[in-house]
């Protein structure tokens, strides 16, 4: 019995590791007509170099707070830079009238915003994804984010 429970626990852990590996999912509205994005395009959207999607609508990229571990991991994965290292870039963009992506307060707020706003694009951990959003890309995180995914989720 103990052996069976241990085996089950081990299996659960293994599944958790596989399912909740250190990935960050890039998400859009569930009804989004965009089905595929390249890493370069995602980079351009979050840097606001690409403002329109293929349907001619304005992308609404969202960010978490610069100190949020998922934001840091996402920034390192996508731009190979920490959020604060992009501030010089955003200074130049500000002079052109372009401000950084809107910052939402939490992952919950990110999911809520994306699920209710056409053309919004954000990111969240796999364990927090709901069926209200569409996963359009998976980014490998250079940082461990497992502690943000409870094992029972």
């Amino acid at each position: 019995m103990i052996t069976l429970r241990s085996a089950l626990l081990l299996f659960t852990c293994f599944c958790s590791t596989a399912l909740f590996a250190d990935e960050i999912f890039v998400i859009t509205h569930q009804q989004s007509s965009i089905t595929k994005l390249t890493p370069k395009l995602i980079e351009n959207i979050f840097l606001k170099k690409t403002l329109l999607n293929d349907a001619g609508n304005t992308w609404i990229p969202l960010n978490l707070d610069p100190n949020h571990p998922i934001r840091i991991a996402f920034s390192l994965a996508l731009f190979k830079k920490k959020p604060e290292e992009l501030e010089v870039f955003w200074n130049e963009q500000y002079f052109q009238g372009i401000t950084p992506p809107y910052v939402v307060a939490s992952e919950d707020a990110m999911l809520r915003f994306v699920s209710t706003t056409q053309n919004a694009i954000g990111y969240a951990l796999p364990c927090h994804i709901t069926d209200q959003v569409h996963v359009i890309f998976k980014v490998n995180s250079p940082l461990s984010l497992k502690q943000f995914c409870p094992k029972n989720t």
């Binding site: 304005t58 500000y94 009238g97 401000t99 950084p100 809107y102 915003f113 209710t116």
Partner: peptide
């Protein structure tokens, strides 16, 4: 307007009113 997109000020980035895509800085 979405209730989450109220105008806010950020130092060095001006006042942004995301809901109507307006920025003053």
């Amino acid at each position: 307007t979405s209730p989450e997109l109220l105008p806010h000020y950020q130092w060095g980035r001006g006042i942004t009113w995301q809901a109507i895509n307006l920025n003053l800085g």
